[in-house]
Computed example of a mutant assay.
Amino acid sequence: MSNATYELKAEARDRVGKGSSRELRRNGLIPAVIYGDKQAPISIALSTNEVTKRIHAGGFMTTVATIDVNGQKISVLPKDYQLDPVRDFTMHVDFLRVSADSRVTVEVPVHFINEDKSAIKTGGVLNIVRHEVELVCPANDIPEFLTADLTGLQLGDSIHISNIKLPKGVEPTIDRDFTIASIVAPVAAEGEASE
């Protein structure tokens, strides 16, 4: 479980729109909005450097943050961010307000372990069906990742969501036993197949 959290300082902004957003970006700030929890949305501006560091550090979309808006501390979960398609800098961020009893839907990555204790060691190939799994979980207890143990899997075997131990209070959004990955025979190279 990742209980790591971080704090960002923000300033409330009165003006919204393209012109205002461009001016913020020229001054090293990113326009953002905090919404949800049956309260009015708040338009804010955040430091471009701080947000970019958090995005590139990993786990940005699954870590609850505290945003200090002029002294008022608000717990949030990032829900979306937009990057400039050409220059790859952050253009906008959407945050969802969360409280201690909030449940959120998030995409959590799957990590595979013990590949050397499966048929992969003897030439099998791991065919990953889902790199991430969409989960509903408490906002203050989001798993950093799910662990899929491949120990003992042979060619043709699959690992399903039921094979992964989920933390208490966490459940997948899909209510069937879906496949996460399977071990398959390697595909022969085209040159070898024709000989």
Rank of each mutant, 00 (worst) to 15 (best):
N3T: 11
N3S: 12
A10E: 01
A10N: 00
E11C: 11
A12F: 13
A12S: 15
R15S: 15
V16F: 12
G17E: 00
S21A: 15
R22F: 10
E23H: 08
L24Y: 03
R25V: 06
L29W: 02
P31E: 14
A32W: 04
I34A: 04
Y35L: 13
D37E: 15
D37I: 04
S43E: 11
S43F: 08
I44D: 02
T48V: 07
T48M: 14
T48H: 13
N49L: 13
N49D: 12
E50R: 04
K53W: 05
K53H: 11
I55H: 05
H56I: 11
A57V: 03
F60Q: 06
F60T: 02
M61C: 10
M61V: 05
A65F: 11
D68K: 07
N70Q: 13
N70E: 15
G71E: 10
G71Y: 06
Q72G: 06
K73A: 08
I74P: 03
I74D: 07
S75D: 10
S75L: 07
P78M: 03
P78I: 01
P78L: 05
D80Q: 15
Q82E: 08
D84A: 06
V86T: 14
V86F: 15
M91L: 15
V93W: 01
R97N: 02
V98A: 11
R103K: 15
R103M: 14
V104Y: 10
T105K: 12
P109Q: 05
H111C: 12
N114Q: 08
N114K: 05
N114F: 05
A119E: 03
T122G: 06
G123H: 08
G124I: 00
G124Y: 04
V125F: 08
N127Y: 12
V129S: 06
E134M: 09
E134N: 05
V136I: 10
P138A: 05
D141A: 15
F145S: 08
L146E: 07
D149F: 01
L153Q: 10
L153T: 07
L155E: 09
G156N: 13
D157V: 03
D157M: 05
S158V: 04
S158Y: 04
I161W: 07
N163A: 10
K165R: 15
L166S: 06
P167W: 03
P167V: 00
K168Y: 15
E171Q: 15
P172I: 04
I174N: 04
R176V: 13
D177A: 06
T179S: 02
I180V: 05
I180A: 00
S182L: 03
P186R: 09
V187N: 03
A188T: 09
E190G: 04
G191L: 14
